[in-house]
Simulated scan of single mutants.
Amino acid sequence: MSTQKVAVVTGASQGIGAGLVTAYRKLGYAVVANSRSIQPSDDPFVLTVPGDVAVPGVGKEIIRQGLAAFGRIDTLVNNAGVFIAKPFTDYTDEEFDLVTGVNLRGFFEVTQAAAKAMLTQEGGHIVNVSTSLVEHANVNVPSAFASLTKGGLNAVTKSLAIEYAARGIRVNTVALGIIRTPMHPEETHQALAGLHPVGEIGEVSDAVGAVTYLEDAPFVTGVILHVDGGQSAGH
């Protein structure tokens, strides 16, 4: 088996996901990068696997291709996610299927396949990306679907951390505030900054730094790490 470590990143084509690909390469990892429309990389240690993680079979295929290319899976970052902010009574069945498909089913299939691979090795690390809105709801940001799905990720983080604690697999979550990514148009940034006690929005480097901290923290598992400018502490 290869000794070079391998990280899998979903939602890897832009924003935080793209930042994670770069960060893991700097750490010396090979990277399996997935998003719906990701383009091939000219880096031989970055394997791009296009596909929608909400579609059955895609999660297993990401891990299958990663194992075929690099021989092992050491870290999975479940970064792919969908956020739709609207009043609860305005959500549609289609939006429910979209959000649960990416945020829950996408997590389930790729994580199950990655965990199976990690159990045949000396362990591994699973990191989920969540939101502080789960624990600190905001009257200005209706977010029932985020809480329903990302709250599930927060809960399963602790469950899996305990299930695998003695088997070498750590499971953690990074719960974010608003991060400056293409998801948020420039003209919204000032208003979004007001959601955080520090008065500004976060940078991709803040989110990436939290994940790389967890990567190098062998005694940390089952943690929800808030990277949110104080949002989860109060306002």
Rank of each mutant, 00 (worst) to 15 (best):
E95T: 04
T48K: 06
Q112W: 00
H136K: 15
N138E: 12
A33K: 05
L119H: 05
V99A: 06
L67I: 09
V32M: 03
T100C: 14
E135I: 08
V49L: 09
G71N: 10
P40L: 05
T111R: 11
I126S: 03
G71I: 01
F107Q: 07
G28D: 07
Q121P: 01
S41Q: 05
A68I: 02
F45N: 15
A117N: 06
R72W: 01
N128H: 10
F88L: 13
T131W: 01
F83P: 00
S132R: 04
L27T: 00
V129Q: 10
R36K: 11
V110I: 15
F108A: 14
N34E: 05
G106F: 02
P40A: 11
L104D: 08
I126F: 02
F96T: 09
T92M: 10
V31A: 10
D93L: 12
I126A: 04
H136F: 08
L98H: 08
Q39R: 14
S41C: 04
N128V: 03
F88V: 12
G81P: 07
Q112A: 12
A69C: 06
P142K: 10
T111Y: 07
T89G: 09
V141K: 14
V141E: 13
E94A: 15
R105L: 09
F45D: 15
L76C: 06
N103R: 07
A30G: 13
D52H: 01
L27F: 01
A115N: 11
L76G: 04
A68Y: 00
D97W: 00
V139I: 14
M118P: 05
T92I: 11
G101S: 12
Q39P: 00
G57T: 08
V129W: 01
R105Y: 14
I126Q: 02
Y29T: 04
Q39F: 00
E61K: 11
I126V: 15
A115T: 12
R72N: 09
A54H: 06
L67Y: 01
P40G: 07
R25D: 08
I63G: 10
A114K: 09
V141H: 13
A54N: 07
T131L: 06
V99Y: 03
R36P: 04
V58G: 10
D74I: 03
D93F: 06
D90E: 15
E61C: 05
F108W: 11
V31M: 09
I126C: 04
E135Q: 13
D93M: 11
E122D: 15
S37F: 02
N103V: 02
G57I: 06
K86I: 06
M118C: 10
S132M: 12
P142V: 06
V139K: 14
Q121F: 00
G123H: 10
A54C: 04
Y29M: 05
F83E: 12
V31C: 09
A69V: 01
T131P: 04
I73L: 13
Y91P: 02
R64C: 03
H136S: 15
F108Q: 13
L76R: 02
A80R: 03
E109R: 06
V53Q: 02
K26C: 05
